[in-house]
Design a protein around this nucleic acid. Structure first.
Lengths: 127, 127
DNA sequence: ACAATAATGATAACTGTTACTATTATTATA
DNA sequence: TATAATAATAGTAACAGTTATCATTATTGT
């Protein structure tokens, strides 16, 4: 797998990710892409999601739910999991670099980065 | 499953968790407990780890490795995953409450708490 | 001692994901 | 435009971690 070749399947997967603010799972993406390419294989979805993550075209979001979620916006940002409905929302801000600085003062090794998920109640469930 | 009953299996599992600073997986705990109770079932380990987590006697640590790790110290604290050797170390400090305050200012819902894992190089791998 | 029932060991089932393989599609080049 | 090289695909099997099932055993209160 050296020089990558185009595929309409990969395009369709990316389109799905770019068309939503939700953070769908591989399976949800599969169901959505099937509306365009009914015979696409679930394996193809996984393969492409893996490749796109490696490329940093998309990012994997581990929301602690045991299932991987995917985000079409590769810029680093935090996420909030709604404890009511399970929705994953973005926090539209740069990650807090000072948290790494804080940790580095306490930890007896090196700190490179961190990953944070928030738990709360989303705007929709709030009312 | 109303009033819980004592079991030597549960005691042994807790002992293992209290005897280590590593953050073993269910399987690693199973292997360790087997030295004392050779015919313990892996299902029993999982069942007890689930119950102990519910009780808040231990905590589950999702280090983003796809596998659940367990920590015998239920006091909230952060963890560092060593990108070199995979070890999970504790950050011995209270979580940063101000991070929630920060997020609450940006997010259009409510923020209850957050969970952070750091990635870095542990003391042992540092050299 | 006994009755009620929680916990166990053994194993099957389940879920999300990865690996395999023959076939198809894309790409660069002649 | 035909061709050769090979990346990507569909379909499916395999896998890992975990949960569920169930008959048996252990713990507990009376």
């Amino acid at each position: 797998m050296n020089v990558s070749k185009h595929s309409k399947q990969r395009d369709a997967i990316l389109e799905v990710l770019h068309s939503t603010k939700a953070h769908p799972t591989a399976d949800a993406i599969y169901e959505e892409v099937r509306k365009k390419i009914p015979n696409i294989s679930l394996g193809t979805v996984y393969r492409n999601l893996a490749k796109l993550s490696e490329d940093n075209t998309i990012i994997k979001v581990n929301a602690g739910t045991g299932v991987e979620h995917f985000d079409g916006t590769p810029t680093p940002h935090y996420h909030v999991v709604c404890t009511e409905c399970g929705a994953i929302d973005d926090i539209d801000a740069d990650p807090l670099e000072e948290v790494n600085v804080w940790a580095a003062k306490i930890f007896k090794g090196e700190i490179y980065k961190h990953s944070t998920i928030f738990f709360g109640k989303c705007e929709r469930c709030k009312n």
